[in-house]
């Protein structure tokens, strides 16, 4: 009897905590130029009518954390509210000379490189604030990179639910099966954030992900 009372009390307290948590922080992580901002923009545009950030072919376009609160996603009559957190791409090296290939002068390139390094540090620090994370990978690239392993390893260590997205499936070079075989223990979904391909399935996966929080 006492056990039952205690159990019910704990259940009430915990359900109260989760009911109180109205918004889930959904982070977008991955290497640079995988399409994190394109996907975050697509979601924000679909559900709020406004985009979140600027996209570019030049790597490290996102150099600061940017987020949009109260993004309500409606799927099959169910609504969930998210704080969409778009993060700078994580890399182990930054070479300002790479930016100069994109018609930037030395000073601009060095400034961008400095901001990019700070952005990477910020991305890592924000990991602790995420309820769930979407790891965005470029499906045209080799998924076996240490950065990808490090990101996912840190999410596993923090017990943060993960969904892996293989972006750019509209491109001929895309090979989603390679991403799937690299991470068979995770749900992998192929999308094109740019053209909105497979977004219905993506939202379905996001709802499944939210259930794991």
């Amino acid at each position: 009897m006492v056990i039952k009372i205690v159990r019910n009390f704990i259940k009430r307290v915990f359900s109260g905590i989760f009911k109180g948590k109205k918004e889930l922080s959904l982070g977008f992580y991955g290497p640079p130029n995988a399409g994190k901002t394109s996907l975050a923009n697509r979601i924000c545009k679909d559900w709020t009518g406004e985009e979140l950030g600027r996209v570019s072919k030049v790597p490290h376009e996102t150099r600061e954390i940017q987020f949009k609160e109260k993004v309500e996603i409606d799927y099959k009559g169910k609504k969930l509210s998210f704080k969409i957190v778009d993060t700078p791409g994580i890399a182990t090296k930054i070479d300002y000379e790479e930016f100069m290939k994109f018609k930037m002068n030395k000073r601009e390139a060095q400034k961008r490189a400095k901001e990019a390094t700070q952005g990477i540090v910020e991305s890592i620090k924000w990991l602790d604030d995420m309820d769930a994370v979407i790891v965005v990978l470029d499906a045209t690239k080799n998924p076996y990179s240490q950065v990808n392993i490090t990101i996912i390893g840190n999410l596993v260590a923090r017990k943060i639910p993960v969904l892996i997205v293989g972006n750019k499936v509209d491109l001929k070079k895309a090979d989603l099966s390679k991403v799937e075989s690299a991470f068979p223990e995770y749900e992998v979904i192929g999308i094109s954030a740019r053209f909105g391909k497979n977004m219905e399935e993506f939202y379905e996966s996001v709802f499944r992900l939210a259930k794991k929080v």
């Binding site: 090296k93 930054i94 070479d95 700070q118 990477i120 540090v121 490090t150 390893g153 840190n154």
Partner: peptide, 23 residues
């Protein structure tokens, strides 16, 4: 994994501050 993340953070803190170090 946590050390790998810190390794990246520390590396990024050095890029731009140590001559010719790119990561």
């Amino acid at each position: 994994s946590e050390e790998e993340a810190r390794l990246i953070e520390d590396t990024m803190a050095m890029v731009g501050h140590i001559k010719d170090f790119k990561g």
